[in-house]
């Protein structure tokens, strides 16, 4: 089947197999920033934004993104650089495997939540696992990031 969607604000029309996941399709299209780990929506590694909201692309049928907007880290370079710099300063980038998914989730959170407290932030991040950093660095970086532009 054919789907039409926009990826990082550029329109795309591609032929897919109805059983294919969004992750598989993105991978085929060369978006290698999107990684996969569990394949069962339990780690957040494969996160992309669907109309601005984080979803696990490994368990999302590509057919469902027809007529929607998908954002990967390539599509939010400016924001990612700003947040990435804060993450780096807090030592929150270690093996880096979780990093693109984390950045996208945080960027979406900033748009979605107004003045979240620490508990709300943690709640938002609960689906994104990181085994290296203990989340401490990320949380420090997020607190700074939420201040930016206020």
């Amino acid at each position: 089947m054919k789907i039409n969607f926009s990826i990082n604000n550029s329109a795309k029309s591609i032929e897919i197999n109805p059983s294919e996941t969004l992750y598989e399709v993105l991978n085929k299209c060369g978006f290698s920033s999107v990684k996969k780990a569990c394949g069962t929506s339990s780690c957040g590694i494969c996160t992309v934004l669907l109309d601005g909201k984080p979803i696990p692309s490994c368990s999302y049928l590509a057919a469902k993104v027809d007529q929607h907007n998908i954002t990967t880290i390539e599509g939010v370079q400016q924001e990612a650089e700003l947040l990435g710099d804060l993450m780096n300063r807090e030592g929150a980038v270690q093996c880096g495997f979780c990093t693109p998914g984390f950045l996208l989730t945080i960027i979406a959170m900033k748009k979605e939540l107004v003045n979240p407290d620490i508990q709300q932030i943690k709640n938002y991040l609960v689906g994104n696992l990181c085994r290296c950093t203990g989340y401490e660095g990320q949380l420090r970086a997020i607190r700074r990031y939420m201040e930016v532009g206020r």
């Binding site: 920033s33 999107v34 990967t72 880290i73 390539e74 370079q77 990435g84 980038v93 990093t99 950045l103």
Partner: peptide, 8 residues
Amino acid sequence: VSEKLLGT
């Protein structure tokens, strides 16, 4: 760090 942040 840079390439990890860019996803490259």
